[in-house]
Amino acid sequence: MHIRTAAVTVLLALTTLTGCSSDGKADPAACKAALEKQYEDSATGKEADDRPPACNGVDNATLQKYAAEIIKEQIDEGLEGALGGVTAQP
């Protein structure tokens, strides 16, 4: 449940950011790290309402790609934890 709530929070934050960017030098690695932190914070109830400063200058398509990657990683980790090593039987 926490994964779904955090994923929605991140996606909502990103959809409100369309057109937000800076002429500054973009650092995609720092941006992804900031988005991961924002995602972790959202799982504890902290709301993300704007673009992390590290993402200024990073285009919206890249932000959406990072968000999708982060959410996929979290869902995969959640499924692994929930299944606890269960394997499929043919």
Rank of each mutant, 00 (worst) to 15 (best):
L14Y: 01
G78W: 12
D59R: 10
Q38G: 08
A88F: 12
L12R: 07
T5A: 13
D50Q: 06
G85T: 10
I71K: 05
P53Y: 11
C31A: 04
L11R: 05
D59K: 13
G57A: 07
Q38S: 15
P53V: 13
P52W: 03
L17Q: 11
E73V: 00
D50V: 01
C55A: 05
E80A: 15
I3Q: 04
S21E: 11
D59C: 08
G24F: 02
T5S: 09
D41Q: 12
K37Y: 07
A30S: 15
G78D: 10
D50W: 04
T16Y: 09
A82M: 08
V58N: 03
T18V: 14
C55Q: 04
A88D: 05
R4E: 12
C55L: 03
A43T: 08
P28G: 02
A82Y: 09
T87K: 14
G24P: 00
G78R: 10
L63K: 01
H2W: 01
L63T: 00
D49N: 12
T16W: 08
L17S: 14
D50N: 06
K25W: 04
Y39P: 00
P90D: 04
A13N: 11
A6M: 02
A54Q: 13
L17M: 14
K46Q: 13
A30R: 10
L79P: 00
M1G: 08
S42D: 10
P28F: 03
T16E: 12
D50S: 10
